Simulated scan of single mutants.
Amino acid sequence: MYSFKNDYSEGAHPRILQALVETNLIQEDGYGGDQFTQKAIELIKQHIGNDDVDVHLLSGGTQTNLIAISAFLKPHEAAIAASTGHIFTHETGAIEATGHKIIAVDTKDGKLTPAHVEQVLNDHPDEHMVKPKLVYISNSTEIGTIYQKEELIQLSETCKKNNLLLFMDGARLGSALCSKENDLELSAIPSLVDVFYIGGTKNGALLGEALILCREALKEDFRYHMKQKGALLAKGRVLGIQFQELFKDNLYFELASHANEMAEKLNNELKKEGFSFLTASPSNQIFPIFSNALIKELQTKFAFHIWEEVDKEHSAIRLVTSWATKESEVVAFVEAIKGRAL
């Protein structure tokens, strides 16, 4: 059975495994003081084109989100997120467990707009309610959509006007930036957001996210927050080696491009067969709508998530491709659904 459930089913790109083996017996300082982490940080800053940011390597997305958001907010402050946002739907109340409310907003495409933010601010006018302080977005979103540059500019301007922090979850940032519909450059992001991260877990690394602090006021004492919440790894080299390998050339973007190409092939072939989609996704997640009977058949050969019920006879499923997805398996999936559109 082949899995389209997620983009972290496989281990890591062979170059990363090779680098881990080759450096295994080199003795290094712990907690990110090793040469590999320092080189990785240097390379990331070069790719971003900004030396003024702080870069911290953490093990996973939920850990990164909860440490960053709890570090930046005062006890009475809250985060704004789309109702499909990862911090609201798939992190077991991690943000709330740190004492901060998430104000969820229903959106049609998983993306927040200035109008959404302004409405939340209007609905929270005084000290009898939590104070909205941070706007959380994902790029790509949980339903595969991406932010265009102008959309991010407008959101950024709204946040600056209202003294709000803008935080971009980049667990799948590689896929977003390598999408054929994308017009946002990695180098433009630091000027538009206060903090973001570059996801490695879902793009060829064994594990790891690179958190980028862009606003000066957020940098102070951040390693204290990491240590207190168990994220300052003694063997920080494990993260550093991986990000050094991903960013010493264009490997990070090559892996994301492959994932997108496989998703695009699936998307195009399903459209040719007459299937419709829950959402228009230009990234490595697609959401076709199948009959429940067809879904049951497909589950004997492929693993995937049933995303939501469309009606009594049909459901949307999520197909996720990765840096390691085999084109032959994409072809096999297409063959299994040929002639089955209703």
Rank of each mutant, 00 (worst) to 15 (best):
D7C: 08
Y8A: 10
S9H: 09
S9E: 09
S9K: 14
E10W: 12
E10R: 14
G11I: 05
G11K: 07
H13E: 11
I16C: 04
Q18H: 10
L20S: 10
V21E: 14
V21T: 11
V21M: 12
T23D: 14
T23P: 03
L25G: 10
Q27W: 07
Q27S: 08
D29Q: 12
D29M: 11
G30Q: 06
G32Y: 03
D34C: 10
D34L: 03
F36D: 01
F36A: 03
L43T: 04
L43A: 07
I44R: 04
K45F: 09
Q46R: 13
H47I: 08
I48L: 14
D51S: 15
D52N: 15
V53F: 07
V53I: 15
D54P: 01
D54F: 05
V55R: 07
H56L: 14
H56T: 12
L57Y: 06
L58F: 12
L58Q: 04
L58V: 15
S59L: 13
G60K: 12
G60M: 12
G60V: 08
G61C: 15
T64W: 02
N65A: 10
L66R: 03
I67R: 06
A68K: 01
A68Q: 01
I69A: 06
S70L: 11
A71V: 13
A71W: 14
F72S: 00
L73Y: 02
L73R: 01
K74C: 10
K74M: 14
H76F: 14
H76V: 12
H76M: 14
E77C: 11
A79H: 05
I80W: 02
I80V: 15
A82S: 15
S83C: 09
T84I: 03
G85N: 05
I87V: 11
I87E: 01
F88M: 03
F88C: 02
F88N: 01
F88D: 00
T89N: 12
T92V: 13
T92L: 13
T92Y: 15
G93E: 06
A94G: 02
I95V: 14
I95N: 00
E96P: 00
E96C: 04
H100W: 03
K101H: 06
K101Y: 04
I102N: 00
D106F: 05
K108I: 09
D109A: 03
D109Q: 01
K111F: 01
L112P: 00
L112I: 03
T113S: 04
P114M: 07
P114T: 10
P114R: 04
P114E: 05
A115K: 09
H116N: 08
V117Y: 00
V117C: 02
E118K: 15
E118P: 04
E118S: 13
Q119H: 12
V120S: 05
L121Y: 05
N122P: 06
H124K: 08
P125Y: 02
P125D: 04
P125F: 02
D126L: 09
E127C: 10
H128Y: 14
H128I: 08
V130S: 09
K131D: 05
K133Y: 09
K133E: 06
V135M: 04
Y136T: 02
I137N: 00
S140M: 10
